[in-house]
């Protein structure tokens, strides 16, 4: 109802109270569980928060293709190779859904990609760890995608329509990712002694970074309170982390593997697992770019972007040359529906 007022500053002394009223009306819509759609009025901070979060999420999907892509040529069977290719392709697709959702907020996709390539944009810290063995592919599917699902399922109910709809698609596909990972771990855990050891080693290396995926403790999370008020976020970092641990520890037990946390124990009174202290200095270092693979990941993205430039340019040249025939297919087709 006040969309136009965005472009022209409100006049006079009423400005403050008008703005307040608008904000209150917006919050009331959120409180009634209404969805916000691209053309609706929204506070600038809401828009910026969403752009930041959706873009980071999209970048994570795109960079997330790299650690797993590393093993496509070395998958141990045709079945495993086909599955891994499908999974990596899904991650690319998820990135596309998310960039598409971010664009509805008025940001250009080219700018978002530029931010990623220049190193200014953040993406999930987990993808800066290396995939040293084939078991890492199992551990990523089981733990990393498992943690992602914990985070993403509540986002299907996020207050911003395009983001929520993208998350519904993504969550449907993530379930395959996690299950193929667990199946891979199960095969190794039941295999030879060396295979079992390889699975244990992968769990040892991926457990703590997976817990860090949920972000800092609630006390140190700057955006949580406001994001929850806006229903962008439905649960806090610590709540989701606890939930993940509670469901994952029994899965590790079933595999016959040991979670690398000497403080881990079942607490009967709270009916939750208690776990050891997370090394937050490691998390901060990886975020700052000092993880094992930060540089390598960005270099790989930049190389892909540069090496693909001639293809993009050729496509544009071809499109310009064939502009008229592109529409020929529909000539005379009449009404479409």
């Amino acid at each position: 109802m006040y969309t136009q007022a965005l472009d022209s500053p409100a006049a006079g002394a009423d400005e403050g109270s008008e703005e307040r009223e608008r904000l209150e009306r917006f919050q009331a819509r959120i409180d009634r569980d209404e969805k916000i759609e691209p053309k609706d009025w929204m506070p600038e901070a809401y828009r910026q928060t969403l752009i930041r979060q959706i873009a980071q999420h999209a970048h994570s999907e795109i960079v997330g293709m790299l650690p797993e892509g590393n093993w496509i040529t070395r998958a141990p069977s045709l079945r495993r190779k086909a599955v891994l290719i499908a999974k990596v392709q899904d991650e690319g697709g998820h990135g596309m859904y998310l960039y598409s959702a971010a664009e509805t907020l008025g940001v250009a996709r080219g700018d978002l990609i530029e931010q990623l390539l220049s190193g200014r944009a953040k993406y999930s810290s987990i993808f800066n760890y290396p995939t040293l063995t084939w078991a890492d592919i199992g551990a990523i599917g089981w733990l990393v995608d498992g943690a992602a699902i914990m985070n993403q399922v509540p986002l299907c109910r996020c207050s911003y329509g395009p983001y929520a709809r993208a998350m519904v698609r993504i969550c449907k596909e993530e379930s395959f990712h996690q299950r193929q990972g667990y199946e891979l771990m199960l095969t190794l855990a039941r295999g030879s002694e060396a295979q079992h050891a390889m699975a244990q080693d992968a769990l040892n290396r991926w457990w703590w970074p997976s817990l860090m995926m949920f972000g800092p403790n609630d006390a140190h999370s700057v955006h949580t309170a406001q994001s929850m008020r806006w229903k962008i976020k439905r649960f806090t970092n610590d709540e989701l982390r606890q939930k993940f641990i509670d469901v994952t520890v029994p899965q590790a037990e079933y595999l016959g593997l040991t979670v690398p946390d000497p403080d881990l124990r079942w607490d009967q009174t709270s009916e939750h697992y208690r776990f050891g202290e997370i090394d937050w200095s490691e998390f901060q270092a990886v975020l700052k770019g000092e993880g094992p693979c930060n540089r390598e990941r960005l270099e790989a993205r930049r190389a892909a972007h540069e090496n693909g430039r001639w293809v993009r340019e050729a496509a544009v040249a071809y499109a310009a040359k064939h502009q008229a025939p592109a529409h020929r297919a529909q000539a005379g087709a009449g009404a479409l529906s």
Binding site: M96, E103, A315, V316, A326
Partner: peptide
């Protein structure tokens, strides 16, 4: 959803 492309 949406996507970018050089032509139809």
């Amino acid at each position: 959803g949406s996507l970018h492309a050089a032509d139809a």
